[in-house]
Design a binder for these strands. Structure first.
Lengths: 228, 228
DNA sequence: CGGGATATTGACTCTTATCAATGCCCGTGG
DNA sequence: CCACGGGCATTGATAAGAGTCAATATCCCG
């Protein structure tokens, strides 16, 4: 196996050797892409803002976050991508956002150039890709409503419901991301996120089984709090 | 002419007769769509959340806002669409957001069903549509950063720079939307928007020539305030 | 040009950010 | 197996920014 000896601690910068090109192609959870899988360690960058645009990706396992930074370090995460999700579409030739692995993550990447070459793919392929982009757009617009118009408690409740809907076990949600990432997704601070978790606990809407494992006790309460 | 006798005041609901189906097809500013133009009076709905998805549109003249409401009336505007812009793409068969004319607005609409019929259009048509969706996605992601992470003053400065870039006369920007719409686009209240305009005036970054006409005096100052 | 919508400004409140201290988990090594 | 250590999370006290309510002022829309 190409497995390297040591995975870095989360503070050391990642070397190229940390990113593993897997030997065998693996079937992706959903069918529209196949390609050479790559494995990224927790916290590593898949691509960065300003880099040339070359590939689009599908998550095989793990979680990816798409984010943008302001010069002073403030960060907004625009979305989390789970197994089966496609990310990395660009309209121009340069990346406008960065993509990072939240935990150790396997993705399959595909050269845009070859996908885009006329003759290689049918109209239905581009219709499918158009659908992916439109759904992503819809999600980002919905998130804009959450961030622009909801209170801190409503945002956290909405986040938990979103993660629950996308989870294999809707009543016991594994949050693979730290509080800081949740905060940067919701436009809050990590302290406020923590306080809102505590408040939802008092409302008996959730129970925490360790910081990253949330049991949803009262989905109706959560939905009411979230103001859908 | 099909012009109806009276256009409503902004509080009365719009009748179907308020929406004018123009007699002659008009060339759209950009080339990928052509169709029957429709004219909507100021404040009227082009489509509403929950309605079936039938058409996509291109703005010919005027301004369109895309918005979503919470049950209690809070509203988030996700974007303003100017002449040449395409809006109204959906992934499913139902509208997730509403579209309204900010001022009297002319659009051309196209049946999605016929656009989407195989054989009617080439791959490059769908590639072009994919580009439209991706650019819209990028814009919404950027707006999420503005709303999630910037201060009120930064948001208003960013808004003015955005409108300036999209304006025919970049130094004298015509804002066709009221303060309330700007607030709902930026995730603020109209009072705060008004105060931030006043603050930018004190900084000599802008001058107001009536509430809807903004002269940009110091673009560098605006860009500095906006923290790009 | 007239009047109702729209915008500005002010006083005060409240939510959330900030700064700071403590606690807890989990992985690591003895 | 347990103790240790370090990132991560929680909790508390205070401050700051934006919201709310309210009273004019101004502007455009017809």
């Amino acid at each position: 196996m190409l497995q390297h000896a040591e995975v870095s601690s989360s503070l050391r910068p990642f070397a190229k050797s940390d990113i593993r090109l897997d030997k065998r192609p693996a079937a992706a959870p959903s069918a529209i892409l196949s390609g050479m899988p790559m494995t990224y360690p927790r916290g590593s960058e898949i691509y960065g803002e300003g880099e040339p645009f070359g590939h689009i990706y599908q998550v095989v396992s793990g979680v990816v976050r798409i984010a943008k930074l302001l010069p002073d370090g403030r960060r907004q995460i625009t979305g989390f991508y789970l197994p089966g999700d496609i990310f990395g579409l660009e309209a121009g030739d340069v990346r406008h956002f960065s993509a990072e692995a939240v935990v150790q993550t396997k993705v399959v990447g595909f050269r845009w150039q070859s996908l885009n070459a006329t003759g290689t793919h049918s109209i239905s392929f581009f219709q499918e890709l158009l659908n992916v982009a439109i759904k992503d757009l819809r999600h980002t617009q919905a998130q804009l409503l959450v961030v622009g118009r909801k209170s801190a408690l409503e945002r956290v409740a909405a986040f938990l419901l979103e993660m629950s809907e996308r989870s294999a076990s809707p009543d016991l949600v594994e949050l693979s991301m730290p509080r800081h990432d949740i905060a940067d997704y919701l436009g809050l601070t990590l302290e406020t996120v923590s306080r809102m978790f505590a408040e939802l606990k008092e409302l008996k809407a959730i129970a925490l089984e360790g910081a990253r494992r949330v049991r949803l006790l009262d989905r109706d309460c959560l939905a009411g709090v979230s103001t859908n």
